[in-house]
Structure formats: structure tokens, C-alpha cells
Design a binder for these strands. Sequence first.
DNA 1: TATTGTTATACTCTATAACTATA
DNA 2: TATAGTTATAGAGTATAACAATA
Lengths: 182, 182
Amino acid sequence: MARNSQAGGTARSRIARSRAGTRPRPGRTRSGNGSAHNDLLNDEIGLDALAGHAGYAVRRFQIWIFQDFIRTLAAVDIRPTQYSVMTVIGANPGLSQMAVAKRLGIERARLVHLLDSLEHRDLVSRIKSATDRRSHALHLTAQGRTALAQFKRLAAEHERHVAEKIGKENRERLLQILSAFT
Amino acid sequence: MARNSQAGGTARSRIARSRAGTRPRPGRTRSGNGSAHNDLLNDEIGLDALAGHAGYAVRRFQIWIFQDFIRTLAAVDIRPTQYSVMTVIGANPGLSQMAVAKRLGIERARLVHLLDSLEHRDLVSRIKSATDRRSHALHLTAQGRTALAQFKRLAAEHERHVAEKIGKENRERLLQILSAFT
DNA sequence: TATTGTTATACTCTATAACTATA
DNA sequence: TATAGTTATAGAGTATAACAATA
């Protein structure tokens, strides 16, 4: 509604697609990637302006990698966050919800719903702690342990897709560079 | 609501191994080198069970990097997506909304709202195209061009934070590895 | 008929606040 | 008083569908 007021009186002549030109940016944009992004000559839009921005590349990569993970584990209907929750519980039976939430950097409020869904699928169980009856000790069910083993095989397949996409050595270099965030 | 049914009958005495403790995170296991996706199939990994998963590291890193970007550009109230939209328009004046949306991988429906906000702040203007009156040619306003120059200085500061966090060479290696996604 | 910009809806994720039952 | 789990709400972000104007 408020939108239309904008275009109002302005649609006059002489605008049309002016030069697709890019003005050269000042300063640092080098970053050593001598190949691959001088797209200005494609029928493509110069994204050049975003080269050299780590956050942009990381965001686009993260979208790709999550989509591949979801696709690869679609048959078992497990999404990345569900997988990470089950993996942490599987490796550390008895953790409280707070501990899992902190470890994975997700809100404890959100973990409640994630666990509801995993519990309904009989993959995870909450057991009231004897020592602190406010908290729940989290465990995989027998079925959950079996299922997680299969999820891990599919996740390994997904990792192979990543290696195919960016190269085996690059994947390992990436893991090293980002090891502080794991 | 459905939740309570779960804990209902089972919250009795036999708690089994419920050391609900928050075990302190042990040092990095042995994930520093070598074929990381074999780690996925190992079971006894402790809290480093997610090492070797590229997607997890990338997600955590992306969260960190976006938060730093938002913090660094908080004074000008510009978020990563707004920055990318202005950068692409600034480098390619006259683009249609469809073209920008496709290039940045965002929904055209969402771009509408992003542009509404930028237009209200007088940073971007939509001009009805003369050649195809369905579409809008997008331009930065004079104010938008001035503002973008400052945003870019702040974004460069953010990139320096990234370099401090992961190392200058690692940042450049990362940009190289992910150049296909830019 | 297909496309551009727009509106609307739904579902996910994040960020809070408040409530309960314990401690 | 503080903490663990829960509920609720609001905001971004994503994914669709539908509609009007235009091609």
C-alpha cells in the first residue's frame, strides 16, 4: 500500500538500463583467487562486488551443504539439527537438556520441541534424574541407537558429496580452519 | 500438551546411569588431520562427536560471522542481506527485482519487503522500466551511494575481525575454497 | 499463456519472557 | 533466590500460492 506512492511520478524517459558498468572499488579485494570471478562478461550480473566477503561465501555454502544433507537423509526424515542432537546424546548418554542445548548452541526452549519429536518417534527418551529432579537425563532408545548408525552412514555419504563439490583436500582444509567452531 | 504423556509412566525410580552432570569438554580428540569422514562411523567419540562434519562447523562459523557483521554494522543498522542487495544494485544499476533476487538466491517475494525498507530509508529507488513496464529498474539514490561507501568501510572492518578470528591466511584460503559459491 | 511485482499464508529458526517444580 | 524444563509470543528467513498488470 505505502509502496505505490514511490514509483508515482517518476516513470519518465531516459532511464532504461543504463550502463551495466561497475565502478572499480577502492582498496582490498584481491584475496588471491585469480580465477573464476570476473563474470562481467557472462550474461551474468557482476557479483564481483561481493567477492572478498567471507560471510557471503559462507552463507551460500551453508545453504548448499544443508540442502544436500537434507536431501541425502530425506529417506530417514532427519534434518541437520535433529542429527546433531542425536549424535551428542549418543556419544554422551545421560546429558541434561541444558547441557545439550549449550553444547549445540540452540535455545533450551527450542530443544524441547526437537526432543518432543524425537521422543515421539521413539528415538530418544527423557528420564527424570534421581539426583536433581528438575532435570532429565537424555538417552537414545535401542531403536534410536540402531537408527543413528544408519544416519551416520548417510551423513558420511553426504560428506562425500561435499568432498566432490569442493575437493577432498579442500574439505579437510576447511575442517581444519573451522575446527575452533566445532 | 502431548509431551507429558511421554514422561508420565516412566518417571519412576530406576534411573540407570543418569549422571546428569555436565561433563567438561575434553580436549580435541584426534580430529586435526587425516580422513575426517571416517570419524562419522566411530562411536566412542565423546563430545567431539560432531568433528568431521563440515556442515556443523560451517553452520557455527556462519552464525559467528553474521553476528559479527551485524554488530560491526549496528551503528548504521544494516544487516547482511540488506548489504548484499545494496552492493549488487550499486555495482549493477538498473537491474530488475527478479534479476537481483535470482543473483542473490533470495525469493522475489522477500525482496519486495527488503526493498520497501531500503526505499523508505531513501537508499534505493524503484523506477518503472520504459521497455518492460512490468518491471522496476533498481538504483541507489545519491544518499544510498554515500551510505554504501560507509557500509563498505565497516564491512572491511568486519573482514578484519574474521581474519583475526581464523587467521589472515586461513581467511584467504577459505575464500578460495568457497569461490564457487560467491 | 508466461512473467514481474505484489500480497498472503505457513513453517522453521531465533530470541525472550514467564510459568512450574524443584533446588 | 536460582535453575531445568516448559509454554507462549514475536521476529526474521524460507517456501509456496495466488492475483493484477503487462508481455
